[in-house]
Computed example of a mutant assay.
Amino acid sequence: MFRRAVAVVLLLATVPACSAVDEHPVMTVDAAVVLADERVGVRVTGLVAGSTVTIRSETVDRNNVTWRGTAVVQTDRAGVADLDVAPSTGGSYQGVDGMGLFWSMVPEGGDPDTGFLAPARPERGPLEVRLTATGASGATASAVVRRQWLGEGVTHRRVLTGGLVADVYVPPAGGRVRRPVLIFGGSEGGSSQLWEAAQLASHGHPAMALAYFDAPGLPATLDRVPLEYFAAALRHLAAQSGGGPVTVIGYSRGSEAALLVGQHFPDLVRGVVVYAPSDVVHAGYPYDDRPAWTFRGEPVARGPIPVDRISGGLLAIAGGDDELWDSVGSARRLRERRPDFEILVYPRAGHFVGTLPHIPTGVGMGGLRMGGTRADDQLARVEGWPRVLAMLAAS
């Protein structure tokens, strides 16, 4: 299983000689190495009782952009600042949030509402976050948290055969065989769900992150993508993971493909999860005079997507403040067609209602506002991601 560690980093900077305050801060994180979707407890002791301490986080993404977060909290009577119980009254987030220093980081010189932290590919290593606490005297203590995309023993393989463009992440051999998962994104194109697939494999699910346009050998845009392409991916993943049906996860425009594939290939699919869904087939993107999808060589007609033939669990996650389209309305209409379609609605979240928690993300992209706030989208991810894992574990 994933090895956990305890990191305790003692005083790194001595108290200035002129200070009358005697502080000896110690920062403790309950796990120095964790999966990226796991919580980390952060606690600072040895501070002045009732004083203000500033705790900062910092990391650098693959684009060499520095991201920083800040919490300003008051110590308790014992001189302790525990971020799971102490509210932040300033900095990059407000209130009690033990993971606030991670998801609320903002890009240096950039707009947090349009910025998205760009981690390195999962197989290239963890996201390292440095935490530093500065007490009333100026004394500091720090720790480093390594947030792993790949759990111990998880392997990666690039798939560029049979016309597929995908990445497969496989749990270590010898463990319980869990439901395999095919996951893909929306109108952003390319392989946008690598990190989700890596985390799914770290939780025991063989997972394939699939590109279906805007990648070498694939259509440049969302234009006449064959549903048979997804079926080929399902068969490939099933063959690599011991056979059996696969759960499909689709985001935004990818929700259309996920539902259509589940409907047209029920023998290959068991369970569908859709984030910020559409319950209808839209035109291609960015051209509105071309079909997005084809089936057996014919365009898939625009209009409501039938879901009566999909087997297994059904889950839709939507934000009530989605400004791209009415994803909540779509989720509710899906439930009208299938009463067993579970829906999770987060009233103040936007289009970026998922997936992984604790990752800094904006609320706008490409000049479009997607609704919600960073804090409300984060809340939806914190609550929604475990529900997805629970559904997969039960299938």
Rank of each mutant, 00 (worst) to 15 (best):
T373W: 08
V48F: 07
V165Q: 13
E188T: 00
Q199G: 03
F295I: 10
G91C: 06
A283D: 11
V272Y: 08
V72P: 03
V80E: 13
R296A: 07
V274L: 13
D30C: 14
G110E: 10
G189N: 06
M1H: 14
A331N: 00
D376A: 15
P291L: 07
A31I: 03
H203Q: 11
R39Q: 15
R179V: 10
M370Q: 14
A31H: 05
A301P: 04
A301K: 06
E228I: 04
R333H: 02
R68D: 02
F102Y: 01
G371N: 15
Y212A: 07
H236V: 15
V159N: 01
N63T: 06
H236F: 15
Y346H: 01
R178H: 07
R224T: 02
H358F: 12
L11F: 15
G254A: 09
D84V: 11
E123L: 07
T52A: 12
V273H: 09
G90H: 07
S192H: 00
Q148N: 14
S187I: 04
V44A: 11
W385R: 12
G125R: 10
M365P: 02
A211M: 03
E58Y: 06
R337N: 03
L227P: 14
A32S: 10
V170S: 08
F265K: 12
V273E: 09
V145E: 02
P171E: 08
A231N: 15
R335L: 00
